[in-house]
């Protein structure tokens, strides 16, 4: 009877939409801030220069990301128990993958391999692990 309604284009409840809206409202300023600061740093930061201030410039884009961290943290508290389980399982797998990547990159560095992009490799591995872990959590029966 109501299955027809359940396959409608609106794939959410009022609560879902309210939570998504709140997350979007908190997440976007951090990402916009990150992009703006990143552009400013790339233009004015002189990261290839010799000034010691370049290190301060280099970490400036991290500051707006703290807003993203806050948004994710608040979203985690806002969502329900099933969604928390899925999100945390994804984060857990992402963390494990990032740690393995860090150890791997660390040993390769000790062995003399030039790993200038080590941080980004670890970041990418963690993100991929998070996405795959979350997808796996959604598919597995609990």
């Amino acid at each position: 009877m109501t299955r027809k309604l359940d396959t409608s284009k609106v794939d959410s409840s009022r609560g879902d939409r309210a939570r998504a809206k709140a997350y979007f409202r908190e997440f976007v300023p951090g990402m916009v801030g990150y992009v703006v600061v990143l552009v400013v740093v790339l233009i004015f930061g002189d990261l290839d220069g010799t000034s010691p201030w370049r290190f301060v410039w280099a970490i400036l884009p991290v500051l707006p990301l703290l807003l993203v961290l806050r948004a994710v943290s608040r979203h985690l508290r806002r969502i329900d128990e099933f969604q928390q389980h899925q999100l945390l399982q994804g984060l857990g797998i992402g963390f494990a993958v990032a740690m393995i990547a860090a150890v791997t990159v660390g040993f390769l560095g000790i062995a003399g391999l030039d790993m200038r992009l080590a941080g980004w490799i670890i970041f990418a591995a963690g993100m991929v692990g998070w996405v795959v872990g979350a997808a796996g959590a959604a598919a597995i029966k609990r």
Partner: peptide
């Protein structure tokens, strides 16, 4: 006569959670 979304609002959970409960993918 409720949709999954309507039940989700009654229970204050997501529609995704109602679907997971109904299909036995999640025990509450």
């Amino acid at each position: 006569g409720w949709t999954q979304g309507a039940l989700a609002d009654e229970l204050d959970v997501s529609r995704q959670t109602v679907n997971a409960l109904e299909t036995g993918r999640y025990d509450p």
